[in-house]
């Protein structure tokens, strides 16, 4: 069943993090992710962990929600940790068996890598929990807008429009897929049993109606957009202007300080 599909993970608590200008938020979070990977040692990771923890608390989104996002990648974290434990040599040998040797250096490296991944997941969760898909689309459109100087303005607008329409229709199409699936099951379609080939064949009665209806929707949507005087990005205004506030000012300084401290640690 795909009924429970929800789009994005926006979790509205109206916190200061939610209020940040999505353009700056996007850039700041990307910067933090980059610097998580640039952090040279545990001091750096410590600073970043503190920063991420602070942002999480400020977002007012329940911590359990963040932990939930870690679940799917536990395997990756463990694998990364194991690789580091066994393949990093140096330091004191703590344990040795057959071809495996665990060293203190290996253990430290494993913890270091695992923390990096966890931090990265947590900070990107902050972005998805506190920013609506629409705000993200607007941020991307705005950040890419300098491309208009090399004649790509219309392309950027089209990309953003496509993202918007895709976001708008994903729930509609999921719902429709579900309906068509039920309708074909009512005619005896069996999609759960049989080999791969049989299952692929059983998909046709769902894909074909879905394709036809999507084409019909696309046509009707194009007509509706025409009727609302859509002629592309040229001459278009926006109701909501993204505008930075005092909080953004603080957020920028915060990010710059964190990043600068990592650079400092790398150099000295």
């Amino acid at each position: 069943m795909i009924k429970n599909f929800t789009l994005g993970q926006y979790f509205n608590t109206a916190s200061v993090i939610h209020k940040l200008d999505s353009r700056f938020k996007l850039v700041e979070i990307i910067a933090l992710i980059v610097f998580i990977f640039l952090a040279p040692n545990f001091v750096g990771i410590g600073i970043l962990s503190a920063a991420v923890l602070l942002v999480i608390l400020l977002s007012k989104v329940p911590v359990t929600m963040y932990l939930r996002n870690l679940k799917p990648i536990i395997a990756i974290i463990i694998l990364t940790a194991l690789l580091n434990i066994f393949y990093v040599s140096g330091g004191t040998v703590l344990f040795s068996w057959w071809i495996f040797t665990v060293t203190s250096e290996g253990l430290l490296k494993a913890a270091f890598m695992a923390t990096r991944i966890v931090l990265m997941i947590l900070i990107s969760s902050v972005l998805t929990y506190t920013t609506t898909p629409t705000e993200l689309t607007d941020a991307i459109e705005s950040l890419l807008s300098p491309l208009r100087f090399i004649g790509l303005g219309e392309a950027v607008h089209t990309l953003a429009m496509m993202m918007t329409i895709a976001l708008r229709f994903i729930p509609t199409l999921t719902d429709e897929t579900d309906k068509i699936m039920s309708a074909q099951k009512a005619r005896g379609a069996d999609m759960e049993n049989g080999g791969i080939f049989k299952r692929l064949k059983a998909l046709m009665p769902i894909l074909i109606p879905l394709l036809f209806s999507s084409v019909r929707r696309a046509n009707e949507l194009a007509e509706a957009m025409d009727c609302r005087c859509y002629t592309g990005g040229k001459g278009r205004t926006r109701m909501k202007k993204l505008s930075p506030t005092f909080y953004d000012f603080i957020a920028i300084i915060f990010t710059v300080v964190i990043c600068a401290s990592i650079i400092f640690l790398r150099i000295f």
């Binding site: 629409t134 708008r168 007509e223 509706a224 278009r236 205004t237 909501k240």
Partner: peptide, 30 residues
């Protein structure tokens, strides 16, 4: 012009943004 299928004439992901779509195309002040 308003059409038959309500699903296929709403373009944006949030109600108020969709209502703004037409005026935005007309280049009206925010």
């Amino acid at each position: 012009l308003v059409f038959q299928n309500p699903d296929n004439q709403i373009i944006c992901t949030i109600v108020e943004e969709d209502v703004a779509f037409g005026p935005e195309n007309l280049g009206i002040e925010p």
